[in-house]
């Protein structure tokens, strides 16, 4: 163990901690909807205000995202590792849940205005119908 080793290690850890802290601040405000993306394309936008279960069936696999009490989490997934189900609940802006094998990203979004399609569907939406499905 040399001096430079310690400097290198501590520098990396410090940079990591500072970035983490910055992201904590960045993640501070609550979001009001989630955006689901599959393979880089938007799959749908869903309000965090209503409790719902979203079934996402794509060529990559099956995921169930659950919204409960303003928080979203991955309830079910048939991916090989199941990491997405262990990423906890998200509700703050820019927080994400990622299911790598299924190329799926759930991201909290806080913008007030919604796409016209989303608001159209919202009027008739029951608890399980998505706000918008854009493929």
């Amino acid at each position: 163990m040399k001096k430079k080793d310690i400097i290198l290690g501590l520098t990396i850890i410090t940079v990591g901690l500072i970035l983490m802290l910055m992201m904590k601040v960045y993640h501070h405000s609550e979001g009001n909807r989630i955006v689901i993306e599959v393979n880089g394309k938007k799959y749908g936008t869903y309000s965090l205000d209503e409790n719902q279960e979203i079934n996402v069936d794509t060529e990559y696999g099956h995921n169930v995202i659950c919204i409960e009490a303003g928080k979203a989490y991955m309830k079910e997934a048939d991916c090989p590792d199941g990491y997405c189900m262990r990423q906890g609940k998200i509700s703050k802006k820019n927080q994400t849940i990622v299911c790598l094998p299924h190329k799926l990203v759930v991201e909290v979004n806080g913008e007030q205005h919604r796409t016209s399609k989303a608001s159209d569907n919202e009027n008739s939406a029951s608890d399980i119908v998505p706000d918008a499905v854009v493929k």
């Binding site: 970035l19 190329k103 799926l104 991201e107």
Partner: peptide, 16 residues
């Protein structure tokens, strides 16, 4: 792979 660069949020944890 997932064509989403927001994954960069995992960078700090991965650095440490």
């Amino acid at each position: 792979v997932i064509k989403n660069f927001r994954l960069v949020v995992y960078l700090p944890v991965l650095l440490i």
